[in-house]
């Protein structure tokens, strides 16, 4: 434990982040503080700016305004130095899918300057843990959506980063693999690593995350420890309350009378 008078810089601190695509403002002044060792959930409706925020926080997209600090170091001032601390799983992008699964993890490891023996050992560990060992020599283009997610996660983990930023890591992943991934990430956060995940699944965020931020229309609506944010309700109810837009369930009356006429 560091002495209390020396403040530990947060794993990730985002200040006043803005991004505009053409006329559309995707992110409108987002501030986030992610403490070291936390398992941080980012939730929000479709198009809220989650992916844009995470891209800017990991050096994949240059913000129009704002600052990204990783453990007190400015990402956009020293991209090469700070990116070494990050493990990234972006959403909606492709992989180098003409490589086999084993080659892709090796590539990620070597790109980050690791030596060959370490990369080889961790590659086989990751393949076994993520249940991909049987497909290690299959081209990634022939993987299913869930397998592609898992191999991308392996690429984000191979260099043992200090901060993991995962965009929709559980999407399309089968329940058993999802449980395994959850265990890995929880253990990682407990040992001092920091995880940020974005997700649509409130239930999952409520169960695995200790902190959460609700984002809508490019703004942070509320952020903090999960129990504070949900204030006694379930996270899902609280989310609906914050974001709004729930229809009252009275519509589509005709759907309830099943008609046999056609």
């Amino acid at each position: 434990m560091p002495p209390p008078d020396v403040p530990v810089p947060p794993a990730l601190e985002v200040r006043g982040l803005w991004k505009k695509f053409g006329d559309k403002i995707a992110v409108a002044g987002i501030d986030l503080v992610v403490p070291v060792g936390s398992f941080y959930g980012l939730v929000g409706p479709n198009g809220a700016g989650k992916t844009t925020t995470l891209s800017m926080a990991t050096g994949l997209l240059r913000p129009d305004y704002g600052q990204v600090m990783v453990r007190g170091r400015d990402l956009w001032a020293d991209p090469v130095g700070v990116k070494a601390l990050l493990g990234v799983l972006p959403d909606g992008v492709k992989l180098f899918d003409r490589l086999t699964g084993a080659q892709l993890i090796t590539y990620a490891g070597l790109l980050r300057g690791m030596d060959r023996e370490t990369v080889a050992a961790r590659t086989s560990d990751l393949l076994v843990t993520l249940d991909l060992a049987a497909d290690a020599d299959t081209l990634v283009v022939d993987y299913s959506a869930g397998m592609s997610k898992k191999i991308a996660l392996a690429c984000a983990l191979v260099h043992a980063p200090r901060l993991l930023v995962l965009d929709e890591p559980f999407e399309a992943v089968d329940p058993i693999s999802a449980a395994n991934i959850r265990d890995i990430l929880t253990a990682y956060a407990r040992s001092g690593g920091t995880v940020i995940v974005s997700s649509h699944v409130m239930d999952l965020v409520q169960r695995v995350c200790d902190h959460v931020a609700v984002i809508a229309a490019g703004h942070v609506l509320v952020a903090g420890p999960v129990d504070e944010v949900r204030a006694g309700e379930t996270l899902e109810d609280r989310f609906v309350e914050l974001v709004g837009g729930r229809s009252n369930g009275e519509g589509l009356a005709w759907l309830r009378t099943s008609s046999d006429s056609s």
């Binding site: 003409r98 590539y107 070597l110 790109l111 020599d137 081209l139």
Partner: peptide, 28 residues
């Protein structure tokens, strides 16, 4: 399904970031 054994070019290039990029490009 296409399968290839081993690491191909990744096993033969120098284990540096530049070597890795070269191996990936050679594979492509």
């Amino acid at each position: 399904r296409t399968r290839t054994r081993g690491l191909g070019f990744f096993g033969r290039v120098p284990a540096t970031p530049t070597g890795a990029v070269a191996a990936r490009c050679l594979t492509y």
